[in-house]
Amino acid sequence: MSAQGRSLELFFIDGRPDGMLTAEVFNWTGHVLRARRTQLKEALQRREAGYTGVYLLFGENEGRARLYIGEAEDMRERLRNHAQNKDWWDYAVLISAAADVLHKAHVKYLESRLVEIARDVGGAELENGNQPTRSSLSEAATANMESFIDTLMMVLPAIRVDAFLNKKRSRPNAGVRSEPAQDPDEFTFAVPRHGVSATAVLKEGEMIVKAGSIVRAEWVGDRKHNTHYFKLHDDLVANGTIVRQGSTSVFSNDYAFSSVSAAAAIVAGRSANGRTSWIHKATGRSYADWEDAQLSEVPQ
Rank of each mutant, 00 (worst) to 15 (best):
G5K: 15
G5N: 11
R6T: 15
S7M: 15
L10W: 05
F11Y: 10
G15Y: 08
R16Q: 12
D18C: 09
E24F: 06
N27K: 12
W28D: 09
H31M: 13
V32T: 07
E42V: 15
L44V: 08
L44D: 05
R47N: 12
R47D: 14
E48K: 10
E48Q: 12
G50R: 09
G50F: 01
T52G: 11
V54M: 09
V54K: 09
V54T: 07
L56W: 02
G63P: 00
L67E: 03
Y68T: 01
I69A: 03
D74F: 11
R78N: 03
R78Q: 07
A83Q: 11
N85E: 15
D90L: 06
A92Q: 09
V93Q: 00
A97C: 03
H103E: 11
K104M: 01
H106S: 04
E111I: 02
R113K: 14
R113W: 04
R113I: 09
I117W: 00
R119V: 00
V121N: 01
G123P: 01
N130T: 11
Q131G: 07
R134P: 02
R134D: 04
A141I: 04
I149L: 08
I149N: 06
T151Y: 05
M153R: 13
V155S: 02
A158T: 08
A158L: 06
R160S: 15
R160L: 15
A163D: 08
K168G: 04
R169Y: 09
S170R: 14
V176R: 14
V176L: 11
V176P: 10
R177M: 09
E179R: 11
A181D: 12
Q182F: 13
F187S: 08
T188S: 14
T188E: 14
A190Y: 05
V191T: 09
R193T: 13
T199L: 07
T199M: 02
A200N: 09
L202K: 01
K203P: 03
G205R: 07
I214Y: 03
I214L: 03
A217M: 10
G221P: 00
K224C: 06
N226R: 12
T227K: 11
H228G: 13
H228D: 13
V237A: 08
A238T: 01
A238E: 05
A238Y: 00
A238V: 00
I242E: 00
A264T: 00
R270V: 11
N273C: 01
R275M: 11
S277D: 02
W278S: 03
W278F: 09
H280I: 05
A282T: 13
G284K: 07
A288Y: 07
D289F: 04
E291R: 12
S296G: 04
V298R: 10
P299G: 10
Q300T: 15
